[in-house]
Design a protein around this nucleic acid. Structure first.
Length: 647
RNA sequence: GCCGUUGUAGCUCAGUCGGUAGAGCAACUGAUUCGUAAUCAGUAGGUCAGAGGUUCGAUUCCCCUCAACGGCACCA
């Protein structure tokens, strides 16, 4: 007779086997109503599971994360049921849970239209209102194959064939709909409801571009309507931050049809920000022990055969161009060029480590469908650097790179990271000993820096282990920008050497690293992170001086000239508009400060200051304002804090 | 590259059941000289993404190309 241990530690004995639902009823009617599924000895099961043995059982409700997953999974099933009822010829395939929702892939001769989505959605609501019971059954393999084949569900037959022989084949019924599924599912369709179908997209069967393209319907589902509303709100927030929208509103950059996709034009306002970023980056590198390089944009095609890029990445490189019978290749990477500089003379162990950094512009032929604003482009500038060192210097060099990375990213307002250490894959170059030594040097450096990281076993490139770092933006999204990669391959291919202490020729270790990644992409991330409201030190226009009327135009120009001399990026707004109009215009442009000057200010040699968040900061003398703004430029703080006293 | 959607003024969009287009904002001109998120009036601005086809006539219908958008695949 089953003894059931509940999560709070209590044990209940029952004279007969009972279902999970009956157990929930025993505990309380409220719980029975909220119950979605069970966890039996750690495994998720349907609520209808018969408990006939002693077990530890937890009742899962929509408050549990697992409950939410089940809701999403069951909503995907409901979607499939609705589609089958409306479009009987469509075949169902798979319908997994994903972050924030689910999708279901259908094999259909005709793609779904947005109107179809509305019909499907309405049908789903009907099925919820019908409150159909969801029943689980176990079928034999032969029976399952025969019955799904009879239903014309060829994809399901394929899926069954791939289920390991020792696993039972389960199906779920709801109404007339039967679907192959591992489960568990909610007990009745009536418990579903807080969902929205989002969009239709093509997706390859089993994620392979050689396979047929299926029609995927994406949806989102939540425990309660308010969670759904909050999620839709969050999507709207991301939409507001879209760097493509803000980029054109603030005249930061453009991508133009006449020039081609994925090629970025930095407009004056964007270019000002880029210059600030680059200046800061260069200063940080020089003081971090790097030397700066400039290298060409093209080189003999042969160089790219030597490096191996022509063999491995030919399809993502622009075609070679010919000049005087010689083929030249636009560069997709900077590293071979840095190697050429290294090889320009004989290097000694005393020269190492060598650290060379370059803001190197590279071109890659990304597939047209991959292009996306600034995030995925065909021409971009990497904040690239290469470190050439001895094996015993790896750990210290990695530690140095990590410190510089934290300093630079932190200055831009990113101090939450997710770090991955990727180790040796199946296919690799170099010896196992070198890999072992290098990998432990990477983890030692991470630990020394006190940085938490995850290990991606076998996730390294064939040429060396790597550390990838993702930053988290203001709304919790993660972006991979920084990467630190060891390379045992290129030094070999280029025959790089240094003369060791004993006079022997040794091969240096090469470290590729980027902190911002691509300036274009990083700029896109910055725009979205700050929603265009850049910190003072980055803002393209830092302050606008606006007179109340023409009477103070000369004074406004004089204030602006003073600030400009102090290194502040200042504009005047001398248009014959009312002050409210100017304030609105520059607030919408996210200019950090406005200095308003009327007769009062002109008389006293001051300005009246307000910030873009609508705070009125009071009266400032020109000198006080100038030095406060200079301080903001120096400290690079994200907040618009000003030393206000004495204003 | 693949599937789908979309492409009208600088921007956001309306419109034409086939008879070559309109609004708001922005721009420009004039008036206004104003105290913390939109002063008023006027002017100009479009090969309706590009090329082809059907038609007496295409921005509208069909085909192709290009681009953007949402995914998939790809991302050294």
């Amino acid at each position: 007779m089953p003894e059931i241990r509940l999560p709070d530690g209590t044990v209940r004995s029952f004279a007969q086997p009972l279902t999970g639902l009956e157990l929930a009823r025993e505990i309380g009617p409220g719980l029975a109503k909220a119950a979605l599924a069970l966890r039996v000895n750690g495994e998720l099961r349907d609520l209808s599971t018969v408990l006939d043995q002693d077990a530890a059982v937890a009742i899962i409700t929509n408050r549990d994360p697992e409950g939410l997953e089940i809701i999403r999974h069951s909503t995907a099933h409901l979607l499939a049921q609705a589609v089958k009822e409306l479009f009987p010829d469509v075949q169902v395939t798979i319908g997994p849970v994903i972050e924030n929702g689910f999708y279901y892939d259908f094999a259909s001769s005709k793609p779904f239209t947005p109107e179809d989505l509305e019909r499907i959605s309405a049908k789903m609501r009907e099925l919820i209102a019908a409150d159909l019971p969801v029943r689980r059954e176990v079928w034999s393999r032969e029976e399952a194959i025969a019955r799904f084949a009879a239903m014309g569900e060829e994809y399901k037959v394929q899926i069954i064939a791939d289920i390991p022989v020792d696993q039972p084949i389960t199906v779920y019924h709801q109404g007339d709909f039967v679907d192959l599924c591992r489960g568990p599912h909610v007990p009745r369709t009536g418990v579903l409801g807080a969902f929205a179908l989002r969009n239709v997209a093509g997706a390859y069967w089993r994620g392979d571009s050689r396979n047929a393209m299926l029609q995927r319907i994406y949806g989102t589902a939540w425990a309660e309507q308010k969670d759904l509303d909050a999620y839709l709100q969050q999507l709207a927030e991301a939409e507001r931050r879209d760097h493509r929208r803000i980029g054109s509103e603030l005249e930061l950059f453009s991508i133009q049809d006449e020039a081609g996709g994925g090629l970025v034009f930095w407009h004056p306002q964007g270019a000002k920000i880029r210059r600030v970023i680059e200046d800061f980056w260069r200063d940080a590198h020089v003081s971090g022990g790097y030397d700066l390089l400039f290298t060409p944009h093209i080189a003999h095609e042969q160089l790219w055969y030597t490096s191996g890029h022509k063999d491995f990445y030919a399809e993502s490189m622009f075609e070679a161009m010919e000049d005087e019978g010689q083929p030249y290749q636009l560069k997709p990477m900077n590293c071979p060029f840095h190697i050429l500089v290294y090889r320009s003379k004989l290097r000694s162990y005393r020269d190492l480590p060598i650290r060379w950094a370059e803001l190197g512009t590279v071109y890659r032929h990304e597939m047209s469908g991959a292009l996306h604003g600034l995030m995925r482009v065909r021409g971009f500038t990497q904040d690239d650097a290469h470190i050439f060192c001895r094996p015993d210097q790896i750990e210290a060099e990695i530690a140095g790179v990590l410190a510089l990375t934290q300093k630079i990213l932190g200055t831009f307002g990113f101090d939450r990271y997710e770090i991955n250490l990727s180790t040796r894959p199946v296919q690799f170059v170099g010896s196992e000993e070198v890999w072992q030594h290098a990998t432990s040097a990477l983890s030692a450096a991470l630990e020394r820096a006190g940085l938490a990281y995850q290990i991606d076993e076998g996730g390294g490139a064939f040429y060396g282990p790597k550390i990838d770092l993702k930053i988290e933006d203001a709304i919790g999204r993660k972006w991979q920008c920084s990467t630190i990669q060891l390379d045992f391959n290129l030094p070999e291919r280029f025959g790089m050497e240094y003369v060791a202490e004993d006079g022997s020729r040794q091969r240096p270790i090469m470290i590729h690293r980027a902190i911002l990644g691509s300036l274009e992409r990083f700029f896109g991330v910055l725009i979205e992170h700050y929603e265009g409201k850049f910190p003072f030190w980055l803002a393209p226009t830092q302050i606008v001086v606006a007179p109340i009327s023409e009477q103070q135009a000369d004074y406004a120009a004089q204030v602006a000239a003073r600030l400009e001399m102090m290194g502040i990026r200042v504009e005047t707004d001398l248009r014959s508009e009312k002050i409210g109009y100017k304030i609105r215009a520059h607030t919408l442009r996210r200019v950090p400060f406005m200095a308003i000057v009327g007769d009062r200010e002109k008389g006293g040699g001051t300005v009246s200051l307000r910030d873009r968040d609508g705070r009125e900061l009071g009266s400032f003398t020109q000198d006080h304002l100038g030095s406060a703004l200079q301080e903001l430029n120096r400290n690079r703080q994200p907040a618009l804090q000003l030393a206000l006293e004495g204003g």
